[in-house]
Design a protein around this nucleic acid. Structure first.
Lengths: 411, 411
DNA sequence: CGGGCTATGTAAAAGTTGTTGACAAAGGTA
DNA sequence: TACCTTTGTCAACAACTTTTACATAGCCCG
């Protein structure tokens, strides 16, 4: 509960974070106003700003405001001073992105996925990342976000288990750090998608966000006070195996009628095949083709979407009643083709959620498309930017491109 | 996200809390061992202990241990130095308890409930509490926990809305503080039950606890790192209105097939009436009589319980998949008669929860009976004990029975 | 039985961090 | 030009913590 002893350096870190957030929120802002926003003294603000300035993360725009007295020196986020590297390991491709400090994508690279043994997979990935790091002109924060399938021990950087790939206890951080000199921050790739939406997408500015990602499977990410909720053993948000149809078909997990069996990309294709009477031969049918058919008004396709929306809507309504969020984002590849499914889900949610909860939350479709996951991994790096720039323990051993990190000798 | 500026006093408060928790956890313990547990220096421990001792909350038992060197002076929680007052407003009675610092009930008083207008209700309650406070021989912490029905703004001490009583925006704290000189800490009464179980009951020692209370309705409480999760607007845990049967009967909330309609004390009585063919005439049937019938092996009663267990089991299994707790407690008045229902629910949960999650959590029946709620309100007071003893802002204006609060002049 | 060893509790000094109060700087206004 | 308001910084001070040193207290062993 109360885990760690706290010394003055904890204060410093907290207040530095506080000031940084305030600068980002009110962007061109004087020291004096920062003091009022954060309730720190002007003196403390000055001292913290003096530490931030030499890292380049913020800059003085010299401008001033017209107010009754002496004009202030405006500070703003210097969004392009540093960049974050993130990669999502999707089923068919590895999506690498480089974003600036504002979460804007500056480079994106889609590499065909090469899955072999865990060791070989991450050696290959590491080598490709090393090449990218070497040739990029951007000054990178000394970490890389890695979005992987499965349940991840984020502290250790280890995949505990991944059903999709059949992996168990893969020490991703250790494997990657053999190839590259950046700290590897490992996270579940769907959860990363939720992080992206909550920081820079449809959930921006909300404190309690539920993100539901509908891809081949279904996963939820829960953000409490802007922080990802991880559960006791990094297993939070597994809504794919919620019971949606109590006496439904058997699932690979051992349960019956899991949500994933009746509401996911995979389920959609199967369902359409069944309704269209194409026994087995679903080869040419894809989520995309079904969505397009629905757009044209095809009855079968619409029915399939409606059925999925019923299940998803109930699941999400239940989540809202339990969590009482102020923002709900529904994303994932199945939603990215058009708004039909989202609107159907929304209608169900509106029927099935308590008025109190419904009136206090917003429902939005995801803002990012197939790169939500990769942006999220970069967002994870950005979340640690101050730690990476100031804390030598968490930062890496080598300097990237002569980054002018203030050494601040403390030994 | 990062809300408040932090000064040195925040450190102090945190570390004081840390030391107190460590003392409670390892109870007879020397200063030196505390230093090792908390990772604070021996000096700091001594200073904090010197502040705690005069409050009476801990004491030196003078004893010593046999270890290689000089024996330490053992410290232990002085559980009977202070007591906490809590009250739960149940439908038919108001349950007042006084517990010691270890959460043990020292006095319990069941007052017949008198519900009138909100103002009159809380004036009456306040007067009864005032009488209790005046005549008790216990030294009370300067606060009273108040467990009420409905959604509560805990910061303001206001009931936002209570469907059961038809109340809206009732300023409970203000009303009570007119009658008594203790700070009123207001909380939902079912949530309080979860707090009791997680602190002093079946969930003791677990970091991530789900508590499900089955009474006339059904409510869940979620505890994350030992702290109650409140949601964005204090609306968390409303599982009573989760959709359990998509095309079920209409609920007063506007939705169909809410869990509360098929799995709760009220539902059990209705269900039994239906199955037994007693149309309407359910007057003599109670939850207790049904449970006793089930114990005798009566088929209808067992079927009713089985049906309820199916719905509750699915709901709880879903919660576990989403939350990944390490402890699940199922309590409430419906469970208190025997273990039949609990075991049925447990079986369903074991079938429907992901293996990963199931193997990392424990399922237990509630430890408290009809006084879980009131113990929880007292627990809420105990959670604030250090704040109440040290922080003048949060404490009350008058001293209780000449409490020897160290004044620690700071001005 | 006294010296050596280990561990505990405390006191003094030093190093963080923050705030307060004073002051010069910079602009608007009478 | 005199006065007011606001801003940014400097010096002094207050609240934490840790480090270092030391007296204390029991045990073991020669």
């Amino acid at each position: 509960m109360f885990d760690k002893a706290a010394g003055p350096e904890v204060l410093k870190q907290h207040n530095r974070q506080l000031v940084m957030s305030a600068i980002e929120a009110h962007t061109p802002v004087s020291r004096a106003r920062l003091a009022r926003y954060t309730k720190l003294s002007r003196t403390s603000i000055s001292q913290i700003v003096d530490e931030l300035l030499p890292t380049g993360i913020i800059r003085e725009t010299g401008e001033s405001v017209l107010t009754g007295g002496r004009p202030g020196l405006l500070l703003e986020l210097n969004a392009d001073a540093w960049h974050a590297l993130g990669v999502e390991l999707r089923d068919t491709e590895w999506v690498v992105v480089i974003t600036n400090l504002a979460g804007k994508i500056c480079r994106q690279l889609n590499i065909p996925a090469e899955y072999k043994s865990p060791e070989d997979t991450f050696r290959t990935l590491g080598q490709k990342l090393a090449a990218i790091i070497k040739q990029t002109e951007y000054k990178l924060l000394p970490a890389v976000g890695v979005g992987v399938p499965g349940i991840v021990d984020e502290e250790a950087g280890v995949i505990i288990q991944s059903e999709d790939r059949g992996w168990v206890d893969v020490p991703v951080r250790r494997l990657l750090e053999k190839e590259i000199s950046l700290r590897a921050l490992v996270i579940n790739r769907h959860i990363a998608g939720g992080l992206a939406e909550s920081r820079y997408g449809a959930g921006a500015g909300k404190s309690h966000v539920i993100y539901v990602g509908v891809d081949t499977g279904v996963v939820a990410a829960l953000l409490i006070d802007g922080q990802l909720y991880k559960g006791h053993a990094y297993g939070s948000g597994q809504i794919g195996h919620i019971t949606a149809v109590p006496d439904g078909p058997l699932c690979s997990c051992g349960n019956r009628g899991c949500l994933e069996l009746v509401a996911s990309g995979r389920a959609l294709v199967r369902l359409y095949g069944e309704k269209a009477g194409l026994s087995g031969n679903t080869g040419s049918i894809t989520v995309e083709s079904i969505c397009q058919a629905a757009m044209r008004g095809e009855k079968i396709a619409l029915d399939c979407l409606e059925e999925m929306a019923g299940h998803l809507g109930i699941a999400i309504a239940n989540l809202i009643n339990i969590f009482n969020p102020n923002g709900v984002v529904i994303g994932g590849s199945v939603l990215q083709h058009n708004d039909l499914l989202f609107n159907m889900i929304k209608k169900v949610i509106e029927q099935r959620t308590l008025k109190y909860h419904l009136s206090r939350t917003t429902l939005s479709p995801g803002h990012f498309r197939h790169n939500a996951g990769s942006v999220g991994t970069a967002a994870l790096v950005l979340d640690h930017k101050l730690g990476l720039l100031f804390n030598h323990e968490r930062a890496v051993h080598i300097q990237i491109k002569g980054a002018p990190i203030r050494e601040k000798s403390r030994t």
